[in-house]
Design a protein around this nucleic acid. Structure first.
Length: 597
RNA sequence: GGCCCCAUGGUGUAGCGGUCUAACAUGCCACCCUGUCACGGUGGAGAUCGGGGGUUCGAAUCCCCCUGGGGUCGCCA
């Protein structure tokens, strides 16, 4: 090794010993004669001192050192002179008095600061990823992620889970997300698909008697990107035989609690994790992944709205819709401009409109309530309305009258928007919750068929199996989600383990018998051979690391992420390939693409 | 595909129709400086304001189009 010690490891215990360090120049403070340099390696930062009386070699060399040069220094660890200790850094009690320095490599002026956490154009952080990752704060995200994954492995190992790899080149199944396809050279005209998740393989591992499987699995979905979505991402995928809902939820809760104690001992969370029924989540928060760090819950005022003379309410209710709203504290003073901004957000999200009601003085309905609603609502109705929202003077009530689906969506957006403006989400709180009671199926209006809410392998509740034929909408699935602070961290279910039931569900989803055989024949055959009852879950590793690290995007916890157009700016991928490569794969590009590339 | 936001020296920002031959901080270069730690001091180089078109006597500033980026809805079994 070119170094005997690491920068961050040095302490009082090393005083008096000679050390050789190697690292990057983090910052320099050059006094002309005497010069200080903060030397950084992956363990931390230590101050090294160049004193012309002690340091050998040409003095010009000392003063020619620049940020991010890679240097090796030999020196003595000494206590800092009294009064010059730096309590701000862990190694601040000591310093290294340099006797010899060698430049191992120089470095051009970096395109952005490495020694400061100034936000910088994300393009640059992606293109020069190796420099961005040098930032101590970003480096610490990688350390945190490593410790998290290690914690998961240690925990599951103690719980007698086996880590088993499954193939990356698998079979395309057009349902669900779009697949990434890989052409086969050996089998012309045929394609592998990259796994959207190892779902079927892990269930087959249960059939294979592994009983407890997990994998830190890379998954691929060719869909549009978001702050918390990349085309390739990592899941903690696990499956457990002879288990039901409670076993999985208990396991996951214990694991998350353990991770919290290791990674975020400072943070607050409730235990046991609250459980939320899907229907309640939708009616109270408008979403199945609510941020529970703040209230702003949705109230239904359909009964009151029906008594008013407000036409919009009546038409919404008559066409089977709902009238619901949220009460935002302290925003009654919103200007016309601010209110119209909120209305724009509501209409942009698909609502036909948004009724705002500024509660200036709740005791004075004449001019204490500012709203288009005022003249359509009687005294009693206004009183019950304010009571329903528990409105105080100074509050702003936002009401949407629309289909249930649109109302939920819009109020969810407004709820998060207002909570953000009012800084209601405490970053030191982790509001975990399990969401249960999802319907098994979801009616797809466009395709006019049933879709799986989760996936087709989710077991229906035993009491609801008979409804599969008569009333599929009412069938409840044995599906559960783990949510935290408005993010879906994971999703799982008790699986179907009997061929007949699995086949019934496939049929219900609109697959013909021949399609079932072609796509899932191997799978149905597998579960026929004594599949044990089993259940599992998959948790988003990137999202977990993002939350633990207090980041707002998973790109901050992924070493080499892609931008919103799924482009890797460092590698410049995807890229065109040589026509010889295409030939070998028996592929050709469409004419218009050839012209463009 | 829709909607919203952004684009000014290397980096981060200011600028709100003329006073912009574009300001500030930091970084960079040179010189000075032996106890700093976001070291300090003096001097200097560095952007024609993402690209194109338009409005105007006059555009970094207003409008349109394009490009790039971010957020989001759709999409994500």
């Amino acid at each position: 090794m070119l170094k005997s010690h690491s920068c961050g490891d040095l302490s009082n215990a090393h005083i008096g010993s000679q050390v050789t360090l190697a690292g990057w120049i983090h910052r320099r403070r050059d006094h002309g004669g005497l010069a200080f340099i903060d030397l950084r390696d992956s363990t931390g930062i230590v101050q090294v001192v160049f004193d012309p009386q002690h340091t050998r070699g040409p003095e010009e060399l000392t003063h020619s050192l620049r940020n991010e040069y890679v240097v090796q220094v030999v020196g003595d660890v000494v206590a800092r002179p009294a009064g010059t200790e730096n309590p701000k850094i862990p190694t601040g009690a000591i310093e290294v008095s340099v006797t010899k320095v060698e430049v191992l490599n120089d470095c051009p002026t970096p395109p952005f600061y490495i020694n400061e956490d100034v936000e910088v154009d994300e393009n640059l952080t992606l293109k020069y990823r190796y420099l961005y990752l040098r930032r101590p704060s970003v480096h610490s995200n990688m350390v945190l992620r490593h410790r998290m994954v290690k914690g998961i492995r240690d925990f599951l190992d103690r719980e007698r889970f086996l880590e088993i790899e499954t193939p990356i080149l698998i079979k395309s199944t057009p349902e669900g997300a779009r697949d990434y396809l890989v052409p086969s050279r050996v089998n012309p005209g045929k394609f592998y698909a990259l796994p959207q998740s190892p779902q079927q393989l892990k269930q087959i591992l249960m059939v294979a008697g592994m009983e407890r499987y997990f994998q830190i699995a890379r998954c691929f979905r060719d869909e549009d990107l978001r702050a918390d979505r990349q085309p390739e991402f990592t899941q903690l995928d696990l499956e457990m035989s002879f288990a039901d809902e409670e076993d999985i939820l208990d396991l996951i809760e214990r694991m998350m609690v353990e991770l919290m104690s290791v990674l975020r001992p400072d943070a607050k969370f409730s235990q046991p994790f609250p459980r939320l029924h899907y229907a309640d989540a939708m009616s109270m928060y408008g979403t199945d992944k609510p941020d529970l760090r703040y209230g702003l819950t949705i109230s239904d005022i359909g009964d009151i709205a029906g008594q008013t003379s407000f036409g919009i309410f009546h038409s919404a209710l008559e066409s089977g819709g709902v009238v619901r709203g949220i009460c935002v504290p302290g925003c009654a003073g919103y200007s016309k401009h601010q209110l119209s901004d909120l209305i724009n957000r509501a209409t942009a999200a698909g609502a036909r409109g948004l009724v705002t009601l500024s509660v200036v003085d709740a005791d004075n309905f004449e001019d204490g309530i500012k709203s288009v609603l005022a003249k359509h609502v009687g005294f009693d109705q206004m009183r019950s309305l304010l009571a329903r929202f528990e409105a105080q003077d100074g509050d702003l009530i936002l009401i949407v009258a629309d289909t249930e689906q649109t109302t939920c969506k819009v109020l969810d957006i407004l709820r998060r928007e207002m909570a953000g403006r009012l800084h209601m989400a405490d970053s030191n709180i982790f509001s975990y919750a399990f969401v249960l009671g999802f319907p098994l199926l979801d009616w797809n209006h466009e395709a006019k068929r049933w879709d799986s809410m989760h996936h087709p392998f989710t077991a229906p509740r035993a009491d609801d199996v008979t409804l599969l034929d008569s009333d599929p909408a009412r069938v409840r699935g044995r599906h559960y989600d783990l949510v935290c602070n408005g993010h879906e961290l994971g999703s799982g279910s008790v699986r179907i383990h009997q061929r007949q039931l699995q086949q019934t569900v496939f049929s219900l989803l609109g697959y013909s018998d021949s399609a079932i055989e072609e796509r899932f024949g191997y799978f149905l055959q597998a579960i026929e051979y004594g599949a044990p009852p089993h259940a599992g879950i998959a948790l988003g590793i990137d999202r977990m690391a993002m939350l633990f690290g207090g980041q707002e995007s998973i790109r901050e916890v992924i070493a080499f992420p892609k931008n919103q157009n799924a482009v890797d700016l460092m590698l410049d991928s995807p890229s065109a390939v040589d026509s010889a490569q295409l030939d070998e794969l028996n592929l050709s590009l469409k004419r218009q693409l050839i012209d463009r590339t």
